[in-house]
Simulated assay, not measured.
Amino acid sequence: MSGPGSAPRGQQPPYWYGDTPVPLHARLLAGLYAGVTALRRRLYHAGLLRRRHPGVPVLVVGNITAGGAGKTPLTIELVERLRAAGWNPGVASRGYGRNNARKPIWVERGMDPVEGGDEPVLIVRRTGVRLRVDRNRAAAARALAAAGCDIVVCDDGLQHYRLARDVEIEVVDGRRRYGNGQLLPAGPLREPPERGAACDFRVVNGGGPGQPGAGFGEWPMRLLADQALPLGGGRPRPLVSFAGLRVHAVAGIGDPERFFSMLRGLGIAVVPHAFADHHRYSAEDFEFGSRLPVLMTEKDAVKCAEFVTELHYSVPVRADLPEAFWVALLDRLPRPAREPK
């Protein structure tokens, strides 16, 4: 059980986002990692490793840091915006943390997150989109195209170079950015910062990004929440109705503090319970010792259906970006196969 203010299980090293010195062994391993990943990128760039394209436009959403930055809410909003523009999107995902990870599957709305992965199940429940989970994202994209999707959104795929892509969106945590700026395991970076600069768009989740302009710019994204959905059944409750009340707040995401800060910003007295990203919950995780309302992220809530009570609420968020971003993004794509209704 995690107590009030406890750190996430499996939390990131303190030197990633702090002033703690990086241990020598981590610096040495980072040098090895840098060499291996640079060689891999060069092999794909030279054509010695083959990229594969599904024959329909591919839009990749990802980040160059380890951990969450807001990719899933952005993917959900992308699906809805593409539909409104006349596209029939499909989503390709790895499905991190699921059982039998080597087996490709179609994720259905009622699927257990243990089988489909928490983020894919959440995306399907919110949107009803066709979603293929496969460690080989290129194979997932081909399956989606064969199933009738005319554009593929690849969730968390910047480093999956086997899949050829038409548009890349880098998502950045505006509060933590690139941390100490070093590569794994000395820092949080999967790839050097110039890799992010090569993407078509950079979306910054909070933290006051720069203004978009000519060439490469930053586009601000906010995650908005206004309702709490009772997991035990019943009508939604305005999130502001918890203002002035003490609640247990549960987050097993890349940056739990983002969720806690959002609730505090609404005047809610938060007792925080942070878990590692993709944590698999048990009933014991919710034995907090007091019968307060429990607010949790939607990504966590999809994994807790078996042991929730009338005290448990899911807090869904919506990605909010400037309309100019959507205009610029859609302008990068060819015309959809069908016109919007």
Score class of each variant (00 low, 15 high):
1 M>K: 10
2 S>G: 14
3 G>W: 14
5 G>L: 10
7 A>H: 14
10 G>W: 08
13 P>Q: 02
14 P>L: 06
14 P>Q: 06
15 Y>S: 11
15 Y>E: 12
29 L>Y: 05
30 A>K: 00
34 A>P: 00
36 V>C: 02
38 A>T: 09
39 L>K: 01
39 L>E: 12
46 A>H: 11
49 L>P: 05
58 V>N: 00
58 V>P: 02
60 V>A: 01
60 V>H: 00
63 N>W: 00
65 T>L: 04
68 G>H: 03
70 G>L: 10
70 G>Y: 07
74 L>V: 07
81 R>C: 12
84 A>E: 14
92 A>M: 12
92 A>E: 05
94 R>G: 01
98 R>T: 09
98 R>S: 07
100 N>D: 15
100 N>S: 15
104 P>S: 14
107 V>C: 04
109 R>W: 04
113 P>Y: 09
116 G>C: 12
117 G>I: 09
117 G>F: 03
117 G>C: 07
118 D>K: 08
121 V>Q: 04
121 V>K: 02
121 V>H: 04
123 I>L: 09
125 R>E: 12
128 G>M: 10
128 G>D: 09
130 R>H: 14
132 R>W: 09
135 R>Y: 09
136 N>G: 11
138 A>P: 05
139 A>C: 11
140 A>P: 04
140 A>K: 05
142 R>T: 14
149 C>P: 08
157 G>W: 02
158 L>F: 02
161 Y>G: 08
161 Y>C: 06
161 Y>A: 13
162 R>W: 03
165 R>I: 09
169 I>R: 07
170 E>F: 14
171 V>T: 04
173 D>H: 04
173 D>P: 07
175 R>T: 08
178 Y>V: 12
181 G>H: 03
182 Q>E: 15
184 L>G: 00
195 R>A: 06
197 A>G: 10
198 A>S: 11
199 C>E: 00
199 C>S: 04
200 D>S: 08
200 D>E: 05
201 F>L: 01
202 R>I: 13
202 R>S: 11
203 V>D: 01
206 G>Y: 06
207 G>Q: 06
207 G>F: 05
208 G>A: 15
210 G>K: 08
216 F>L: 11
220 P>T: 11
222 R>D: 15
223 L>I: 08
226 D>G: 15
227 Q>E: 13
228 A>Y: 01
230 P>K: 12
234 G>H: 09
235 R>Q: 15
235 R>T: 15
237 R>N: 11
241 S>N: 14
242 F>K: 02
242 F>A: 07
244 G>L: 12
252 G>L: 04
254 G>T: 01
260 F>D: 00
260 F>R: 01
261 S>T: 14
266 L>K: 14
269 A>F: 11
271 V>D: 13
273 H>R: 06
273 H>Y: 06
274 A>K: 01
276 A>D: 13
276 A>F: 07
280 R>F: 13
284 E>C: 11
287 E>G: 14
287 E>D: 15
288 F>T: 07
290 S>L: 13
292 L>W: 02
292 L>P: 06
292 L>Y: 05
292 L>E: 11
296 M>C: 09
297 T>A: 05
297 T>D: 05
298 E>S: 13
298 E>M: 03
305 A>Y: 04
307 F>G: 03
312 H>I: 07
315 V>C: 09
316 P>L: 13
318 R>Q: 13
321 L>E: 03
322 P>Y: 06
327 V>T: 15
328 A>W: 02
329 L>I: 06
330 L>H: 10
330 L>D: 08
333 L>P: 01
337 A>G: 15
337 A>Q: 15
339 E>D: 13
340 P>F: 09
